[in-house]
């Protein structure tokens, strides 16, 4: 039986909004695991780090596994020290920069989707180092995911299944740049955009979203019609990335489709109802441009999940 996870919140929400969000997730969302912690910009941590222990405790009381996500890019002593403290505390860590592995000293960890695990050779290295779950890169097509799942002796393979897909990370802050500011004096303008700042084509067509130093897809990846095929191919965990949309409702739809209680087409229709103007995408899974959207045309249309 596959599980749903709630990925780390990628955006800079206010502390109050975070607390309310996770309280509701703890009480209502059918997710088995919640990732907490700042992945994008360590400057944001001071805003909410004091709330994390209580949030984690509440999620655990609700029966959820809690994993602490770590930065996509670790360059400063302060960032390394924060990760070291998290490792020393014995929490399960999601590694998003291999610098982390050096701090784990053999402890088990989750290999996050921002690591480049594109093939079974890289997978074997991470398993040897202590990975107990492998998040695969968002760029991978279904057949490659199936190949990795088949080789993954940890038994836990996670796919990014809902939300804006992370496409790139940088040192430069594009949010600050869009406001004519610099990263060192950013005024936390990224907090103005709960789902990221849209960047459109010059004619207004959809393009990308920026979130501080991170660049995301414009559309939200939606894999409802691929869940059954991926689960059959060995994917054990499906990640929902937090957005301003009602995430309890999103998780409920995904859970119902995973359980076979709701058909994928019906799940898509229900998601469409609550998604407003959000564009859906799924191109990467089909080996196409990531921004494409083509839902399964008919019931039972098979994805190419035969291992390569």
């Amino acid at each position: 039986m596959s599980s749903l996870t709630l990925g780390p919140l990628l955006f800079h929400w206010t502390p109050a909004r975070r607390r309310d969000f996770y309280a509701r997730i703890a009480d209502e969302a059918p997710v088995a695991c919640v990732y907490l912690g700042e992945v994008v910009c360590s400057k944001r941590e001071a805003w909410f780090s004091k709330d994390l222990p209580a949030i984690a405790e509440r999620l655990r009381r609700a029966g959820k596994q809690v994993v602490f996500s770590t930065p996509a890019l670790i360059t400063t002593e302060r960032e390394a020290a924060a990760v070291r403290a998290r490792c020393d505390a014995g929490d399960l860590i999601e590694v998003n920069d291999l610098a982390c592995v050096q701090l784990l000293q053999g402890h088990r960890f989750v290999a996050g989707p921002l690591l480049n695990v594109f093939n079974e050779g890289a997978l074997a290295v991470l398993l040897r180092l202590g990975a107990v779950r492998i998040g695969v890169p968002v760029e991978l097509p279904a057949a490659a995911i199936a190949t990795l799942a088949r080789h993954n002796s940890s038994g836990e393979t996670e796919v990014f299944a809902f939300g804006r897909q992370p496409l790139a990370i940088a040192q430069r802050c594009y949010h600050a740049r869009a406001h004519d500011l610099h990263k060192d004096d950013c005024r936390f303008v990224c907090g103005e955009d709960t789902d990221g700042l849209p960047a459109t084509q010059l004619d207004g067509g959809p393009l990308l979203a920026v979130n501080g130093t991170q660049t995301l897809t414009h559309g939200h990846v939606v894999l409802l019609d691929a869940l059954a095929g991926l689960a059959a191919a060995g994917v054990s965990h499906f990640r929902l990335s937090p957005h301003a949309i009602d995430m309890v409702a999103v998780a409920t739809i995904y859970r119902a489709v995973l359980d076979g209680a709701t058909a994928a087409e019906e799940g898509l229709a229900r998601l469409r109802e609550i998604a407003g103007s959000i564009a859906f995408i799924n191109g990467y899974l089909r080996g196409q441009a990531g921004m494409n959207w083509r839902p399964a045309r008919e019931r039972g249309e098979a994805l190419k999940t035969m291992p390569a």
Binding site: Q165, A168, T217, G290, M291
Partner: peptide, 8 residues
Amino acid sequence: RCFLSSYF
């Protein structure tokens, strides 16, 4: 760690 090209 940049997938912009493949996105398009």
